[in-house]
């Protein structure tokens, strides 16, 4: 019997590998899910009006209904990919889309949005990446759904796709109130 032990160990390993093949080892679940969203208070980007007064917005201003927080940047390739879909989402108007421009130059942002359109309700600026750290952002684009009660309901890493939105975000939009 003991001569069969190696075979059993192999079987167990192969089973784990089969499951492991379907997982992405780089995809990290957020420890923030179910917890109140990190406190942020960030300056509003000077877009589209270059002469807008410097104004800060934070959690309090968005409380009361669910909203999406989308970390993006003009230098990020995945953001280009998801951008057209964000434009569609904005047109549908199902949910407020808060953009946080992550470690980006103001001029680059303006040029980028001028070419592609602006899907965001407000764009906040996270120039030094501190808000990113508080949200546990490790690779833009990342999209968070924050409920009406201010809790983080879901996090999506990478370009947001219609499938991911319908599957993961939509069912949660009514929750958290």
């Amino acid at each position: 019997m003991r001569y069969a032990i190696p075979l059993v160990v192999l079987g167990v390993l192969l089973a784990f590998f089969t499951v492991g093949l379907k997982r992405d080892p780089r995809l990290l679940p957020s420890p923030l899910i179910g917890k109140p969203a990190p406190a942020f208070s960030l300056p509003v980007a000077a877009f589209p009006n270059t002469d807008a007064a410097p104004l800060k917005l934070g959690n309090a201003e968005f409380a009361g209904k669910p909203y999406l927080v989308n970390f993006f940047a003009s230098w990020c390739a995945g953001c280009q990919v998801e951008h057209p879909y964000l434009m569609t989402l904005a047109k549908q108007g199902a949910v407020t889309l808060v953009g946080i421009d992550y470690k980006d130059a103001d001029a680059d942002l303006r040029q980028w949005l001028a070419a592609r359109g602006n899907p965001y309700a407000p764009i906040l600026v996270d120039l030094d990446g501190r808000a990113g750290i508080d949200f546990g952002v490790y690779g833009v684009p990342e999209t968070f759904l924050i409920g009406a009660d201010g809790r983080v309901l879901h996090k999506h890493v990478g370009a947001l796709t219609p499938e991911a939105f319908e599957r993961d975000f939509k069912p949660l939009l009514g929750a958290g109130s």
Binding site: F16, F17, V19, G20, R23, P25, L28, P29
Partner: peptide, 11 residues
């Protein structure tokens, strides 16, 4: 890490 992830015990 692979085993824990496969068992949904976190990363």
């Amino acid at each position: 890490p692979l085993v824990l992830d496969a068992l949904n015990l976190g990363k």
